[in-house]
């Protein structure tokens, strides 16, 4: 079913909106949640929570295309669930790995404080991603947005794990320089 038609079902408050969303986006967001959470049960619950959040948000929200929207809601929901779980000392591999790698991109000392202006950071990241080559951007987002493993990325791109690691390393270095130039970090 086309996104427009699914959106119409949400606007008309038809349960079929959930059925069609599950059919069209279920595999995508389930696999995202599963990569992050590592638990099929948690992934299922995250998927259901995602539908509920979208149901509540649309309308008034009218997101098109729908796949990125569902994915973003799912990612946020899964991260929240993961962090709640991490507080209970049950960390997940893919997420911890990605955090550890991303730490390399942060200019200056990690002072443990939350960054204050998330909107500015989001805008800067969009600028940064726009300037990357399509392939570097895809690899970067597969790793840090979709939480795919290096091996998965290499397999899907028809390249080696070493090449993927190299690409990620270069992009993280560029990101660090970019954030420093934009002064998007706290300097004590």
């Amino acid at each position: 079913m086309e996104d427009q038609e699914i959106l119409r079902l949400f606007n008309a408050r038809k349960e079929a909106a959930i059925r069609e969303s599950r059919r069209k986006f279920g595999p995508l967001i389930r696999s995202l949640a599963l990569r992050l959470l590592g638990s099929r049960e948690d992934a299922e619950e995250t998927e259901n929570d995602t539908y509920m959040k979208v149901w509540t948000a649309v309308p008034p929200a009218q997101p098109l295309p729908l796949a990125p929207y569902f994915s973003a809601v799912c990612r946020r929901t899964a991260l929240d669930r993961l962090r709640a779980r991490t507080r209970e000392k049950r960390g997940a591999g893919a997420y911890e790995e990605s955090l550890s790698e991303l730490a390399e991109s942060i200019p200056g000392k990690d002072d443990g404080r939350a960054f204050a202006d998330s909107i500015a950071l989001q805008n800067a990241l969009n600028d940064f991603l726009s300037a990357l080559t399509p392939e570097a951007r895809l690899i970067f987002l597969r790793r840090y947005w979709w939480f795919c493993s290096v091996a998965e990325i290499a397999r899907s791109r028809g390249t080696t794990e070493g090449a993927v690691k190299m690409s990620l390393s270069r992009t993280r270095a560029k990101l660090k320089a970019f954030l420093k130039e934009e002064q998007l970090y706290e300097t004590d």
């Binding site: 595999p27 995508l28 389930r30 696999s31 599963l34 997101p63 295309p65 796949a67 990125p68 929207y69 994915s71 973003a72 990612r75 946020r76 991260l79 962090r83 990605s98 955090l99 550890s100 991303l102 730490a103 991109s105 942060i106 200056g108 990690d110 002072d111 443990g112 404080r113 939350a114 960054f115 998330s118 909107i119 950071l121 989001q122 990241l125 969009n126 991603l129 726009s130 399509p134 951007r137 895809l138 987002l141 597969r142 840090y144 947005w145 979709w146 795919c148 998965e152 899907s156 998007l184 970090y185 706290e186």
Partner: peptide
Amino acid sequence: MKPTDLTDALNGVDPAFIKESEPEAAS
């Protein structure tokens, strides 16, 4: 800044970037 700030900020990137980087769904 913490790595989680970056992870969170990535959630707000352009939907077009999300779409183009969409992995094959795990069957």
